[in-house]
Write a protein that binds this DNA or RNA. Structure first.
Lengths: 306, 306
DNA sequence: CCAGGCGTTCGAAAAGTTTGAACGAGTATG
DNA sequence: CATACTCGTTCAAACTTTTCGAACGCCTGG
């Protein structure tokens, strides 16, 4: 049993319903009424089903006709969209762009770019995932994302290109009611060691996980994301370094306090990474927007962009 | 811009991918290779997009071709299914049958019938909702469902037909640690009045709600469903009548105890209801299966069917 | 009752598809 | 390195399908 349904029949059905009569539909399709009659009776023959009830003066849809009309419209739409999507792909626009943002960068950082992209290219989907440390790199290498944003120390790796993204400065924080908050002078490493550190777990599935900026012997609370880490710090569960952009508001509101450190952690240079090879145009759009001119990959002086 | 995509092109594309070459696809479609060439180049012209890369010996899909193939298959499937669905509708099978089951009946009661129906008619969807008292009737009248199962006192109403369903017997229950559980002799109405009754709220949205089997002046806890009522009783929040089928297991396990009543509530006759008019065949199937021979609507002697 | 719109039917004309043969190009096989 | 085979394309001719235009019968509204 081969496919017994023609798109032209559905198109005709749609036009008839839209314009109210065979004659009007014919006019709308720049055809003669008999052609519409022919198309519909062909549909009815193919299907072995009455689509219109002609017992009255004007033809009226049967229940089966109603179903064909309603569902047929979905098929027509899908078909038209498929045509458009194919054209876009041929023009090197990806149907979907997948972006991983590293825990160092608040995802809100990307919203303006994503909103602007969505306004320009409403038909292209953007999928944003959040990863931590090696997980961001791994998502790119494993082809789970097309663009990695805010990776701090990308391993040397063939097949990956990069351009500078933001410098991320850290604040060493704890809750106001945390014992360390009493301190007025810079905290030494020895003092630190007796307080629990909140750390974010590397989200790598495959590569060996690494932890960042930790003193040996310090007790830990490991959480899954930077957002959880901030929440944990606010609840006084420990201390830790957090990118300033993540805690600016909490510091201003007094939910967290910043502690001076004897050896403060220096700002981290972060990168925009993508696989080399022919990038799609959506990827190029984001590289240009987020990374600026990628032919001059130099570290940016700014901290986080808002 | 009219629709520039033909189903035959997608069909050809599918056949080429499935059989590995233009020639094999042609054979599978009982056509000559040049016809396939023609169809594909027509697709490429319509779309203005290369679907195959012919630079090598064998034609190989471009990314756009890949998209057309993958998405095109979905469209082909949808189209075929639409044809089949239209035939079913013309044959008086509903695309979806909506059933409301009254709170008196455990929904599990219907599972065997629904499973059997699904096995016979896998393409017809069944939507099961749960309603209480007037809500069941109202869902039917408002055309939110096609069949109402287990309605106890259907109001006289034109345009509705019915046949007997199960007789529902009630058990008056409370938790074993409830004060009334101490009683060894039949409970009088006066005694009852001082204990909270758990009642199920009528789910009617429009019609005036009614409450069943309540003594005036008795404090109440109103819950949304029979399942909640059973749970409330088990937690000792009150007392109340429950259809035996809902609590057989809880009584056997000792999570509830049955109390003898001075004036026990008599079993309720329940009905299967549907709107009169030409019933679809799925509806007929369920009426026949659940209600037996509907030309002899007589109360059934059994209690609940399992 | 008449004018006008509706949808169908039919033969003829137009448009579109399929065919088969010929061709060039690539790939296995000996 | 021939040879035989398969692949996909092109082209004119045969064929099929769709569209057209005119004629017709039906119903509705004035």
């Amino acid at each position: 049993m081969t496919n017994p349904l023609r798109l032209e029949s559905l198109e005709a059905l749609d036009a008839i319903d839209r314009h109210g009569s065979f004659a009007a539909a014919a006019a709308a399709l720049y055809r003669v009424p008999s052609a519409i009659s022919y198309t519909i009776s062909q549909l009815e023959n193919d299907l072995g089903v009455a689509v219109f009830d002609r017992s009255g003066h004007r033809a009226v849809l049967t229940p089966a006709g109603r179903l064909l009309l309603d569902e047929g419209r979905r098929i027509l739409t899908a078909t038209r969209e498929l045509g458009a999507a194919a054209r876009r792909v041929a023009d090197n626009w990806e149907p979907e762009l997948r972006i991983a943002v590293d825990g160092l960068i608040p995802p809100t950082d990307l919203w303006p770019a994503i909103a602007a992209f969505g306004a320009e290219h409403p038909a292209i989907n953007v999928r944003l995932t959040e990863e931590v440390l090696g997980g961001t790199w791994e998502a790119l290498i494993d082809d789970r994302v097309d663009l990695a944003v805010g990776v701090a120390d990308p391993p040397a790796g063939a097949g990956v290109r990069r351009t500078a993204y933001a410098d991320v400065a850290f604040a060493f924080c704890c809750a106001p009611h945390h014992p360390l908050a009493e301190r007025t002078h810079a905290v030494t490493e020895d003092e630190l060691r007796s307080h629990r550190a909140v750390v974010v777990a590397d989200s790598a599935r495959r590569l060996s996980p690494r932890d960042a900026g930790l003193l040996d012997g310090q007790p830990r609370l490991t959480v899954a994301s930077m957002a959880s880490k901030v929440a944990a710090l606010e609840h006084g569960l420990g201390v830790g370094h957090v990118p300033r952009a993540w805690v600016a508001e909490a510091l201003a509101a007094g939910r967290l306090v910043e502690l001076p450190l004897e050896r403060p952690r220096e700002a981290a240079q972060t990168w925009l990474l993508w696989r080399s090879g022919a990038p799609g145009r959506a990827l190029e759009w984001f590289i240009r927007r987020l990374g600026g001119d990628r032919d001059q990959p130099m570290p940016r002086a700014s901290q986080m962009r808002s």
